[in-house]
Design a protein around this nucleic acid. Sequence first.
RNA 1: GGCCCCAUGGUCAAGUGGUCUAAGACACCGCCCUUUCACGGCGGUAACCCGGGUUCGAAUCCCGGUGGGGUCACCA
Length: 521
Amino acid sequence: MEIHGICAVSRLGAAPRIPASRTGSGSGNKEERNLLPVRVRFAPSPTGPFHIGGARSALFNWLYARRYGGVFIVRIEDTDLERSSRESEENILAALRWLGLDWDEGVEVGGPNGPYRQTERLELYQRCAEQLLRQKDAYRCYCTEAELAAEREALLARGALSGYSGRCRDLSPEDCARLEAEGRKPAIRFRVPDQDAIVVRDLVRGEVSFDCSDIGDFIILKSDGIPTYNFAVVVDDHSMSVSHVIRAEEHLSNTPRQILLFNALGWETPQFAHVSLILGKDRSKMSKRHGATAIEQYQEKGYLPEALVNFLALLGWSTGGEEEVFSLDELIQQFSLERVSKSPAIFDLDKLNWLNGHYIRQAPIEYITDLSIPFLEKAGYLTTPLAPERYEWLKEVVALVRKYLVCLEDLKDHVGIYFSEKVEILEDEAGEALAGSHVPALFAALERLVRDCPALSADAAKALLKAAGKEAGVKGKQIFIPVRAALTGSIEGPDLDKIMAILGKEKVAGRLAGALARDSS
RNA sequence: GGCCCCAUGGUCAAGUGGUCUAAGACACCGCCCUUUCACGGCGGUAACCCGGGUUCGAAUCCCGGUGGGGUCACCA
């Protein structure tokens, strides 16, 4: 297996070791660093469906890359062998593409720093771990999970929950040999230095300081040779020359460990930006019980990617202006890390719904019609391929009902009357409207007029309605309500003349006759 | 519990010491448009967590409290 990016590691020897006394996340001030080419990454672990929060992290990274002409990398953090799967990796990538977030380097597209799946870069981590071992910045730990669990429990009982006892910190080669003879497989632990404070310079949070004594020696390479998250990110972010690490706030407390690793390996740290979390209605971290959390679910319900992107961008970021609706291009123009909010945001489904409806109403009708087709198929209203006239007709249907939609899945509740043969009386009021004494005369007149009409356009329908009313001696609501009831089974809905035009002569006349027959029986 | 982060209407948020009797959006309420519903338009209700400082002056700065969240794994 060939691993690119080894060059980055080979610089190791030459790079000056950053003294342990140094605090801070690396050299160079902000302005200086900003001149560096922007290289950001989205690094999901493929352990389940693509979460809303992950999507926002991906979006922010992508926007940042596009805003500054940088490179957006997608790397797969699949070191959790138990939970990772190709299936969810593909899921995530598909969702990324659906949202319109394309990547320049990474899994599937390749690039100079690949491979982009961590399980395919094991050799690299191995080598870096050995380096640390040689420098005495890491050591082999022979404790078993059971021993560690017991130790943790004891620690917890004393109320001091933190870290590792350091039992294997200073094992002699002989100790190691003996333990290995027992059949124990060592994990590799990082030796956290005696350093007072380590400060994270964060682009959204400012300087955040952590005390080293609060950080216990942590494992960087598991006993099976797989790296641990904190180790793999550092090695990869360096070897992929990542300039800015933009990720969720839950990683903030991991950052000092990572900085320690960067320092020990003699590497410069990237810039960090920790974006606050997305919370559910009850203010706790967004999870399944708060409703749909997977991007996939929104896609299935018929949310538009542009609405979701727009919504996600506004969660934790704002322009400062009054506008709320932004295309991807407009977001790129305006995005900046400086305007990312520090406080967590609650996922507001109402606003997403409004935005989605807004996009459904505003987008070109062909676009919405095309997106609607799979939903109509699924509801059993349509089979593809569509004849051209049928498509034109469908466009009119969609144009008529889209103002009622929150998402495309709602279509099925509004289009039944245009597809089905029979009308179902849905409301009591509709039945009552049909029972009016003037109704038979009105319907008879209208049915005749409709049948005699050469082409039932909306304009023609309007005129016919008026004429029929005149013949029956009624007007206004007395015309519209019963006709609407007969044609749609409901007393509310889109403009009646347009409904009639879409339904066509046959259906209109037939339904009128049907209502009459039903009424007299 | 230790450590860390956060705190403007129900929600998203603008606001970076005076122009704040605090913007905008969603939701809610009302009016208008309309044959109905919806869309749309117009208007309205509603907020600086508490307590101390600093200052001529604080939503804005500092300290403390409270509340919420995150994190403490051979998970990421």
